[in-house]
């Protein structure tokens, strides 16, 4: 076996023999994915409910539109009571040619939507009835899935976060451990170069990240979770690689600075936790306040997140590679340079 392969094998063995590491790398992110995936499964796909009393062309058209759930009432008073109680945003009363919409002003947003809907449907029918071709042509076209189903943003988010956490913790703690246990010193006495040690560590980190990606995406694709990958999912590979590189070098820096495993754990947490919360791991970042979105731009995890999302689920084109890859690789270069400055083979 070559020195490179034997070192990589040694690292993989100590990785898979450590139950705690395995848990944090695979089980915990998976738990988040499963819990959030199931919890938020139906959010966003829910239709607006609307009460109806009576019958006629308007009601039929509303039902066919497919954007509302219709609940029929046989008594007008029952329906109005429901609207009053806030259970329904509105009630359409259709008797003959009269269409009356009753709504509660307490839920303005939904009431507005319902008004627009009912008015729109009614106008359409009016135009059709008049026999004239409509002057203004109106079409609705979907440009992109702005409001993704939760699993669509949870998967890239939790995947990026899991990879980042494992790369930073795994790299930093094993570096500290090897230094403290004098393995690095002992390796200095073997006829191998520093690059052999570094690249074998990097290859192991990439391998672990790949295993995480396959596992998380594989689970999310199961119908209960219902992830649908976009056609350009394979373009997320460069994002994945530059992301792993960025977090590998951050781990190197943490491991170079810290003297003990405890210190490395603490430092890695300080680096990773704020990123995890502010980079859109658990909720879409574009729902956050503007200033927070601005702040989150400094985090490499934010860019890995965005990049993974753009290709895994949003189906963006190659030009979307530039920003995230550029930022992540730039990060890698800067951090790697600093890490190489502070690195020592042994404690003084």
């Amino acid at each position: 076996m070559s020195p490179f392969r034997s070192l990589s094998t040694a690292m993989v063995k100590s990785f898979i023999r450590d139950k705690a590491t395995l848990f944090f790398a695979f089980v915990m992110p998976l738990m988040f994915l499963v819990i959030f995936g199931l919890l938020f499964r139906d959010i966003g796909s829910e239709k607006i409910k609307i009460g109806v009393y009576g019958d006629g062309a308007v009601i039929t058209a509303l039902d066919r539109s497919g954007v509302v759930d219709i609940q029929r009432f046989t008594s007008l008073d029952d329906g109005i009571a429901k609207v009053r109680a806030g259970d329904l945003p509105g009630l359409v009363e259709a008797t003959g040619d009269n269409v009356v919409l009753r709504f509660a002003a307490s839920n303005q947003a939904q009431a507005g939507t319902v008004q627009g809907l009912v008015a729109g449907v009614t106008q359409q029918l009016n135009v059709a009835e008049s026999g004239k071709p409509p002057k203004y042509d109106f079409r609705a076209e979907q440009v992109e899935d702005a409001s993704l189903k939760p699993i669509q943003y949870l998967t890239p988010g939790i995947l990026s976060w899991g990879i980042a956490t494992t790369a930073v913790f795994g790299t930093s703690i094993s570096l500290v451990n090897w230094r403290r246990k004098q393995i690095l010193r002992r390796l200095r006495l073997a006829p191998i170069g520093a690059t052999t040690i570094l690249t074998s560590r990097l290859v192991v980190t990439v391998g672990v990240a790949l295993a995480q990606a396959l596992l998380f995406i594989g689970i999310a694709l199961i119908p209960v979770f219902g992830l649908t990958l976009s056609g350009t999912w394979w373009m997320s590979v460069p994002i994945f690689v530059s992301g792993v590189l960025a977090f590998f070098t951050i781990g190197m820096l943490v491991g170079a600075v810290c003297k003990t495993e405890e210190a490395a754990t603490g430092a890695a947490n300080i680096v990773v936790l704020p990123m995890a919360f502010l980079s859109g791991t658990f909720f879409p970042i574009d729902q956050a306040p503007k200033w927070l979105q601005a702040v989150s731009q400094v985090f490499p995890l934010r860019h890995m997140n965005d990049g993974m999302m753009d290709f895994l689920v949003r189906g963006k084109g190659p030009q979307a590679l530039l920003l995230p890859c550029g930022v992540l690789l730039g990060f890698t270069l800067v951090v790697a340079f600093i890490a190489s400055r502070v690195f020592t083979w042994e404690d003084s």
Binding site: M1, S6, L7, T9, K13, S174, W178, Q182, R186, A190
Partner: peptide, 22 residues
């Protein structure tokens, strides 16, 4: 070395095999 330097969680045989490969 005075303080033994071993690869974490590897068996005696694996330590020697790793060093041999180096």
């Amino acid at each position: 070395l005075q303080a033994s330097a071993f690869f974490t969680k590897l068996t005696a045989r694996e330590q020697l095999e790793t060093f041999a490969a180096l």
